[in-house]
Design a binder for these strands. Structure first.
Length: 382
RNA sequence: GUCCCCAUCGUCUAGUCAGGUCCAGGACAUCGGCCUUUCACGCCGACAACACCGGUUCAAAUCCGGUUGGGGACGCCA
């Protein structure tokens, strides 16, 4: 066991005479360069835009190393030199840099440079209240994770700015311009916040509020902008058609507008919304059992419905609804049985937009074709 | 151990500096309802907090002191 020992530098070489220094140099002893903290009686400190006045007594500050024995300067010094050279006016960083700042104030003074404005932001902690870091928390705190999970970039910024800052009123959704207008250093919180995510939770794969804000943007943003972002997702999944940017653009954007209300991320367009862009979509287990297999008669009824849709003079929402209800009445079942069975076969989903809007978006040909192929599900089940 | 920072619903927070309008407001989450042939969206509602003790005051979430709790920093890392 190591014995308890004093933290910090003991000042061994603080007061060497030039002769003593020369002697050690001649002996080839390795050395570092430390900053000689002045022996002053007052307080050493700075005014922090977030935290207010931060002070330490000079005696608390050890002579700190600024240049290594190999001649290379340390971060503490480089940082200050770079910032002076670049004429940095504001230094905004985490509260874990507070003590660095105290020492750097001395460096600024020694270099004869004016102090920049310092603002130390609160830290973001995990559920166990430990400082979040890439090393200990992995991809959940990496920006690319959110990109890969279909987050709208600005939605993530919007979420993050609310961690430790608020405008003072109830506004939470900000455009970039609005945020620039509303943001002030003075309104940054002093206390740490917690990044509320539970590992392994499928529904909330990250902080629920982050997801909520992403949803908010997903359903209110300009549909053209959504279209551009979804394009990248569809391209990645091999679902993109160049026509979506050309002659089918209207259809493309209309379809996105139809389905976006139920989605959480951009990726959902390619997963939950796959049936709108491809024929090889998966039918989810739940609707398969609940809405299809539970009613074996649908094996006959849906192809019958397909025939009637095929024969329809006008394939409209009104007509398709009328025909579906007619069939239900004819077979003595609730319309829901037909509609939900149809939804399952046509979209693979338990839920979705109004059934007849879906039919219109998919078009007669796909609808008829999917309704006719219903028996494959019953065969699979056997 | 030493020094620094912080403390309002489960989470993000408003309110604290300029004490009364706060038996504490909003958002997310959760739960209920309306709407919906589905599920969402939307709307309505419910649940839920001033860490504790003392002081100042006619009056304290708000000011002061202490306690407890949490975080951070104490590297020839950045």
């Amino acid at each position: 066991m190591a014995a308890k020992q004093e933290m910090g530098y003991n000042g061994a070489c603080r007061n060497l005479t030039p002769e003593q220094v020369a002697e050690k140099e001649a002996a080839g002893l390795p050395f570092v360069i430390r900053f000689k903290v002045p022996e002053r009686s007052g307080m050493l400190g700075y005014d922090d835009k977030v935290l207010g006045r931060i002070e330490h007594s000079y005696s608390e500050v050890d002579d700190f190393v600024i240049v290594r024995s190999n001649g290379k300067p340390l971060y503490l010094l480089c940082n200050v030199v770079d910032d002076i050279r670049d004429r940095i006016t504001h230094v905004l960083r985490g509260q874990d840099h507070m003590t660095n700042t105290t020492r750097q104030v001395l460096l600024y003074e020694a270099l004869g440079a004016p102090l920049p404005v310092f603002a130390h932001m609160p830290l973001t902690l995990d559920l166990k209240k430990a400082k979040i870091s890439k090393r200990s928390h992995g991809e959940i705190v990496a920006v690319h994770f959110y990109k890969e999970h279909g987050f709208i970039p600005w939605a993530l910024c919007n979420f993050l700015v609310l961690l430790g800052w608020s405008p003072g009123d109830d506004k939470e959704i900000f455009s970039r311009e609005e945020l620039i207008e509303a943001f002030t250093l003075e309104r940054i919180n002093k206390s740490n916040s917690i990044f509320n995510y539970r590992k392994g939770d499928e529904k909330f794969f990250t902080d629920p509020k982050a997801i909520a804000i992403n949803e908010q943007y997903l359903r209110t943003m300009d549909i053209g902008d959504i279209g551009d972002m979804v394009q990248k997702v569809l391209e990645k999944e091999g679902l993109w058609e160049v026509a979506y940017a050309g002659e089918k653009k209207e259809w493309y954007l209309h379809t996105l507008a139809l389905i976006r209300d139920r989605f959480h991320t951009l990726n959902d367009f390619a997963t939950l919304g796959r049936a709108y862009f491809a024929d090889d979509f998966q039918v989810e287990q739940k609707p398969l059992e609940k809405n299809l297999l539970k009613f074996p008669d649908l094996k006959e009824w849906l192809p019958l419905l397909a025939d009637r849709y095929q024969a329809l003079e006008q394939f409209t929402a009104e007509e398709t609804e009328r025909v579906a209800k007619e069939l239900a009445e004819e077979k003595g079942v609730k319309p829901g049985v037909i509609v939900n069975g149809m939804r399952t076969v046509v979209t693979g989903q338990l839920a979705g937009p109004s059934m007849y809007d879906i039919l219109m978006t998919l078009g007669r040909e796909k609808v008829v074709q999917r309704l006719r192929s219903v028996d494959r599900f019953f065969q699979q089940a056997d």
